[in-house]
């Protein structure tokens, strides 16, 4: 497993220029994703209207893996229904567990760049953190912790 496989171009690019890196003005849902051990701490904001995620954003300090995952997530889930967003989350988990087939890869698109963390058990948590925060937000929980 090489470093280039972990830090793929898309991961580095999203880490340097995170998308939707701001606080939404009137979010309908929000939560905090925390991994105190790693020092990852992000906030996820969602604007959900009639079961559809109108927009998503995040803020915080975290490792490149978490930052890239969060940035890609805010792009990917915008305009999806809540059910579709949760399905994307499940698909990402399958990818990180090494169970992705071609159809699933196609559905995940850019998120496949996170696949390199599979070889680093401690970093899988980092990739999942923003998604857990999204789920927590939808469940009206204030905090999602990976520990």
């Amino acid at each position: 497993m090489s470093l280039q496989d972990l830090y793929r171009t898309a991961v580095i690019e999203h880490n340097k220029n995170p998308r939707n890196f701001l606080e939404l003005e009137n979010p309908s849902h929000q939560s905090r994703g925390l991994n105190a051990l790693c020092g990852d701490d992000i906030r996820v904001y969602l604007s959900v209207d009639e079961d559809r995620i109108q927009s998503a954003s995040f803020l915080g300090q975290a490792s490149a893996i978490t930052m890239a995952s969060a940035s890609m997530m805010t792009v990917q889930i915008a305009r999806l229904t809540v059910g579709e967003a949760l399905q994307t989350c499940d698909r990402l988990d399958q990818l990180l567990q090494g169970e992705a087939d071609e159809a699933l890869r196609e559905a995940l698109g850019e998120l496949c760049a996170l696949e390199g963390v599979r070889q680093y058990p401690s970093r899988i948590k980092a990739a999942r953190l923003p998604w857990q925060a999204m789920k927590a937000a939808l469940n009206e929980q204030q905090i999602a912790s990976t520990e």
Partner: peptide
């Protein structure tokens, strides 16, 4: 521009073991 955990992973690939995190001293952080 580099989070400690990314640094820890990259250094490990050079054979270097360091600690990254809060060092069980969160009030200092």
């Amino acid at each position: 521009g580099i989070h400690p955990h990314d640094l820890g992973t990259i250094l490990d690939h050079s054979g270097v073991a360091i600690r990254t995190g809060h060092h069980c001293a969160m009030p200092i952080m």
